[in-house]
Lab assay of single mutants.
Amino acid sequence: MKTQEELTEIVRDHFSDMGEIATLYVQVYESSLESLVGGVIFEDGRHYTFVYENEDLVYE
């Protein structure tokens, strides 16, 4: 089982391919040991929310 830090790094690596990240945040109250819920804001102003669970990243 991966730690929350490892899950965060996986998500950061994925989004870094889309541009320069200004902020990546995790909603700790919605996340667990198996899933990571949060959002990412890019330097150009784009903002996505995401759920990473079971090695699957869903964002909008």
Rank of each mutant, 00 (worst) to 15 (best):
V11Q: 00
E5G: 08
S31I: 08
E53V: 15
E34H: 10
E43Q: 13
M1F: 14
Q27S: 13
S31A: 14
G19R: 02
Y29P: 05
L57Y: 04
V28R: 14
E5Q: 12
D44I: 02
E5C: 12
R46P: 03
L24Y: 04
G38I: 04
E43M: 15
F42D: 00
H47T: 06
S35C: 09
V58C: 11
T23H: 11
G39R: 09
M18L: 10
F50G: 00
I41Y: 09
G39C: 14
R12S: 05
F42Y: 05
H47A: 07
I41E: 05
V37S: 09
A22I: 11
F42P: 00
I41R: 05
Q4C: 08
E60Y: 14
S31L: 09
S31D: 08
L24N: 00
Y59T: 05
Y52S: 02
R12L: 09
I41A: 04
F15D: 01
T49R: 10
D17H: 15
T8W: 08
Y52L: 09
Q4A: 08
V28Y: 10
V40W: 01
H47Q: 07
F15W: 03
V37A: 08
D13I: 14
V40H: 00
Y25C: 05
D56R: 15
L24A: 02
L7V: 06
Y48C: 03
D44W: 02
V28L: 12
Y29K: 06
F50N: 00
K2L: 09
T23Q: 10
G19N: 02
T3R: 07
V11E: 01
Q4W: 08
E20W: 09
D17K: 15
E30N: 15
A22M: 10
L24E: 00
G39P: 00
V40S: 00
I21F: 03
D56T: 15
S31G: 10
Q27H: 14
V37R: 13
K2R: 11
V26E: 01
Q4R: 12
F50W: 09
D56N: 15
D17C: 14
D56A: 15
M18T: 03
Y29S: 07
K2Q: 06
Y59G: 03
D56C: 13
E60G: 10
S35G: 06
R46G: 04
L57K: 02
E55V: 06
V51N: 07
S32K: 11
Y52E: 00
G19Y: 03
L24M: 09
I10C: 06
H14Q: 09
T49C: 07
Y29I: 06
Y29R: 05
L57D: 01
E55F: 11
M1V: 11
Y48E: 00
T23K: 11
V40A: 03
E6L: 07
I41V: 10
Q27K: 15
E9V: 09
L36Y: 04
I10T: 08
I41S: 04
I21Q: 01
D17A: 14
V26M: 04
D44H: 02
E53W: 13
E9A: 13
R46Y: 03
E53N: 14
T3L: 05
Y29W: 12
G38S: 00
D13G: 14
L33A: 13
V58N: 09
E5I: 09
M1K: 13
Q27V: 14
Q27E: 07
V11D: 01
M18Y: 08
V58G: 05
T3E: 04
D13V: 15
M1S: 13
V26F: 06
I10P: 03
E9R: 14
E5F: 11
H47N: 05
R46L: 05
Q27W: 10
I10F: 10
R12Q: 05
V37P: 00
S32R: 06
M1L: 13
L36D: 00
F42C: 02
M18H: 08
N54L: 08
R46N: 05
K2N: 05
Q4L: 13
I10E: 07
D44P: 01
S32N: 11
Y25D: 03
Y52D: 00
H14N: 06
E53A: 15
V11T: 03
Q4Y: 11
E53D: 08
H14E: 05
V11Y: 01
F50R: 00
E6G: 05
Q4V: 09
L33V: 12
G38R: 00
L24K: 00
I21Y: 02
L36M: 09
F15V: 02
Y52I: 07
E34A: 12
D13R: 14
E20I: 13
V51D: 03
E60A: 13
E9H: 11
D17T: 15
T3V: 05
V26H: 03
V11S: 01
N54F: 10
M1Q: 13
Y48H: 02
V37T: 14
A22D: 06
V37C: 11
L33C: 09
Y52H: 02
L7K: 04
R12E: 04
E9M: 12
I41P: 00
V11N: 01
E5K: 09
Y59L: 07
G45R: 04
G38E: 01
Y59R: 03
H14D: 03
V28N: 10
E43I: 14
E43L: 15
Y29Q: 06
S35F: 12
E20C: 11
S31V: 10
